[in-house]
Design a protein around this nucleic acid. Structure first.
Length: 307
DNA sequence: TCCCAGGATACTC
DNA sequence: GAGTATCCTGGG
C-alpha cells in the first residue's frame, strides 16, 4: 500500500470489534472487494479491500485492531462514519442473554461484524436485486449497473471506478436494457422504483426521517419491495438497528435453535414473527446486530468461502 | 434433467 | 388472513 500516486491520505486507527473480512462477506455490502496486486504476471490477493460508496473510493487494511484507511483527505470523516466507529459493539455483545447459548456462540464468532452506514438508494436497488440470488450474482449485477449507468471517476491510483447510479441515472435505463443485466424478473421492479424515485413519488429524504415502522410501511408500498427487502433496506440503508430481516437462513436458524411446542399451532406466516418477537425483541436498539451474528455464524458453518 | 437459491406478486379460498 | 403458481438466471 505504498505506491499510491497523489493527494490521498493514510490514516491508521485502532478499533475493537471490527473485522473487515467478516464484514465483507456478511451479506450486507456488495462493493467491498478484496484488493489484488499483479506480481510476475499472476494476480495475488493482498489483505485489504476497496470500497465504493456514495461516489467515493477508499481502501481498507487491517492488522489486529489496527485499521488503515486510504482515501481522499476530505473523505476521512465519511469513511469513519461508514464503518460505524461511534457505536460500541462490545456493549451490544455483552448484552446477549446468557441463557441463549446459540446467540452467545454466534456473537463471539462474528464479533467483528458491524452494520455499515451505506447509501440508502444503493441499498434499495441492491436488495431488490438480491431476491433469489446468491451473493456473487448480486455483486455481479450491482457492478454491471455501476459500469453501465454510474459516474466514472479516477481514484488516487489512477484507476477508474464507477459510482452506483443515482435515481436519475438509473431511470434512463429502459426495461429492455435492464433485462440485459441478468436481473430477470427483478428488472421490472427496478424499472418501476427508478421511475418512482426520479419522479419524486418515492421521497428518499422523507424516508430518511421516518422511524422504523413508518419506513417499513412506506417502503412496502413500492413494487418489488416486500417485508424482507424492506427490512434489509431499513437495517443497512437507514441504520434502523431494530430491523430484523427474516430470510430462509434465519428461518432455518429459528426452527433449529428457537422452536418451542407453544408454536405448533401457529400458521407459518405468524410463526416467524412470533419467534423473532419472543427471542429478539428484548434487544431494543440492536436486534439487527444480533440478526447479523446468527446469520453469519450459520452461513460460515455451511460455506467454505465466498470470494 | 430437475431442483433450488438470501422473494414478491397476483391470484385463489 | 393464509396458501400457491409464477417469475429469471446460474449452478449443483
Amino acid at each position: 500500500m505504498n505506491n499510491f500516486t497523489n493527494d490521498s491520505i493514510q490514516i491508521t486507527f485502532s478499533q475493537p470489534n471490527l473485522d473487515l473480512f467478516q464484514i465483507a462477506d456478511s451479506g450486507q455490502c456488495f462493493r467491498m472487494i478484496p484488493l489484488e496486486s499483479e506480481k510476475n504476471g499472476d494476480t495475488k490477493e493482498i489483505p485489504g479491500f476497496s470500497v465504493i460508496c456514495s461516489g467515493r473510493y477508499c481502501e481498507l487494511y487491517q492488522k489486529g485492531e489496527k485499521i488503515t484507511l486510504l482515501c481522499m483527505p476530505q473523505d476521512e470523516t465519511f469513511w469513519k462514519n461508514y464503518l460505524d466507529i461511534d457505536t460500541d459493539y462490545g456493549t451490544i455483545i455483552a448484552s446477549v442473554d446468557p441463557s441463549d447459548k446459540y446467540l452467545l456462540k454466534a456473537a463471539d464468532f462474528g464479533k467483528g461484524i458491524r452494520i455499515l452506514r451505506q447509501d440508502l438508494w444503493e441499498m434499495i436497488i441492491t436488495f431488490i436485486i438480491s431476491q433469489q440470488k446468491a451473493i456473487p450474482q448480486i455483486r455481479q449485477a450491482v457492478e454491471d449497473l455501476c459500469r453501465s449507468y454510474g459516474t466514472a471517476t479516477v481514484n488516487f491510483r489512477n484507476h477508474t471506478y464507477y459510482s452506483f447510479p443515482d435515481p436519475y441515472q438509473l431511470s434512463r435505463a429502459s426495461l429492455e436494457e435492464l433485462k440485459k443485466h441478468r436481473l430477470g424478473y427483478r428488472a421490472k421492479y427496478i424499472y418501476q422504483v427508478c421511475q418512482d424515485a426520479a419522479g419524486k413519488h418515492m421521497d428518499l429524504d422523507a424516508l430518511k426521517s421516518m422511524p422504523y415502522r413508518q419506513a417499513m410501511d412506506y417502503l412496502m408500498q413500492f413494487y418489488g419491495i416486500g417485508e424482507k427487502v424492506a427490512n434489509c433496506i431499513c437495517l443497512f440503508g437507514l441504520h434502523h438497528v431494530n430491523a430484523f430481516p427474516v430470510d430462509t437462513w434465519i428461518k432455518k436458524i429459528l426452527m433449529k435453535e428457537y422452536w418451542q411446542d407453544a408454536y405448533k399451532d401457529l400458521p407459518k406466516n405468524r410463526l416467524y414473527t412470533t419467534m423473532v418477537h419472543d427471542h429478539f425483541s428484548m434487544y431494543e436498539g440492536c436486534a439487527g446486530v444480533m440478526q447479523q451474528y446468527i446469520f453469519f455464524y450459520e452461513r460460515r458453518g455451511n460455506m467454505s468461502h465466498l470470494f
